[in-house]
Simulated scan of single mutants.
Amino acid sequence: MDILSDTLAALRTGRPSVVRTEARAPWGVRFQPVSGAGFHVVVEGRCVLLPVDGEPIALGPGDVVFLRRGTGHAICDEVTSEPVAFVPARVDTSSPIGSFTVEGGGTRSVLVCGAYHLDTDRPHPLLGDLPEIVHLPASPGRHPVLRSAVDQLCAEIHEPRPGSDAVVAALVDLLLLYILRSWYDEVSGDRTQGWASALNDPLIAPALKAIHDDPAHPWTVESLGSRAGLSRAAFARRFASVVGEPPLSYLTTWRMAIAARMLRETGDSLSEVAENAGYTSEFAFARAFKRHFGAPPGAYRREWRTASAL
């Protein structure tokens, strides 16, 4: 698996959800914070996104907005419109597709609103590298693959057919990848630092791939530097400059992400999780995990299962 796909798979903590939202002017919708990231696609009409902090963002048909931390916000037809709470309805609670309607007598707007459930206890640099709000305006010939995914998603939600639940879940996952790719493409010429830049750095990318391919390996700065063909000191400086943290710090970040995913999704023993995360001692692993997440691995697993059962 490539590094971006691998990272997203490790950060996911649940199935994404999506809601078809239809509103007629005057209208406004208030979105509560979510544990993860949120997105909106404007299918029809024009509106304004009102973040908690910052200036309003005008949105038009085909625009895509991604909120990396799922912070609370509002979307209205006009900045003066009073928002109502976003409380979507689901005919089938097992379905990822919901609906929400704001009645009114004016012009109609249609949006697709969704949420990605991601591990935000200790954010991976993938998310930390992004701005709080990513706005990808619609424009002819711009991000054609993203546009294609948006069109397919809107078609499935507008007119569900047998198999739409599976199709929508897959398309929403694809949408996240395409949003990230599109943003990376837009900023690639202006950025030489950050996790996204490291993916294409000819010296750092091989070291990142080595960490992701075999996180349990007893990597050292020297052994990772050899993948880049650099001395220990030169590699450490370049890695920290591009990625934003030292190589062994990133190794720990990734090992903890892998361990947290295993605790959430498997019944493996703590010793097995520790071994997969590169720790020969369960005690050393537990201490590192608590330092990273603020809770011992056993408590983390229990809390996660309790929350998932609610």
Rank of each mutant, 00 (worst) to 15 (best):
I3M: 09
S5P: 00
S5L: 13
D6K: 15
A9C: 09
L11S: 07
T13A: 05
T13F: 00
G14K: 10
V19K: 04
A25K: 02
P26T: 11
V29E: 03
P33I: 05
P33D: 06
S35I: 10
S35L: 14
G38F: 00
V41Q: 04
V42W: 01
E44M: 09
E44L: 13
R46T: 15
R46N: 12
L49D: 12
V52R: 15
E55D: 10
P56D: 04
G62K: 01
V64C: 03
F66D: 04
F66C: 03
L67K: 07
L67W: 06
R69L: 07
R69T: 12
R69V: 06
T71Y: 05
H73Q: 14
H73K: 13
D77T: 08
E78P: 00
E78K: 13
V79F: 04
V79Q: 12
T80Y: 06
P83F: 01
A85P: 00
A89L: 06
A89K: 05
D92K: 11
P96F: 09
T101H: 03
E103M: 08
E103D: 12
G106E: 04
T107E: 11
S109G: 08
L111D: 08
R122Q: 14
L127E: 03
D129H: 11
V134N: 01
L136K: 04
L136S: 05
S139Q: 08
R142K: 12
H143W: 10
L153D: 01
A155N: 04
I157M: 15
H158N: 12
P160G: 08
G163S: 07
S164A: 14
S164C: 08
D165A: 10
D165K: 08
A166D: 14
V168Q: 05
A170S: 13
L171T: 02
L171E: 01
D173P: 01
L176S: 03
Y178H: 14
I179P: 00
L180N: 01
Y184I: 07
G189I: 15
T192L: 14
T192V: 14
G194S: 09
A196C: 06
S197M: 14
S197Y: 13
S197I: 13
P202F: 12
A205V: 13
A205W: 15
P206R: 12
L208G: 01
L208V: 09
A210P: 05
A210H: 10
I211E: 01
I211W: 01
H212M: 10
H212F: 14
H212D: 04
H212N: 03
D213M: 11
D213C: 06
P215F: 08
W219T: 08
E222L: 11
R227M: 11
S231A: 13
R238Y: 09
A240M: 06
E245C: 11
P247L: 04
W254H: 15
A259E: 07
A260S: 14
R264M: 05
S271H: 10
A274I: 02
G278Y: 03
Y279Q: 10
R287T: 15
A288S: 14
A288C: 06
K290M: 11
P297D: 10
A299F: 02
R301Q: 10
T306R: 15
S308P: 00
S308I: 05
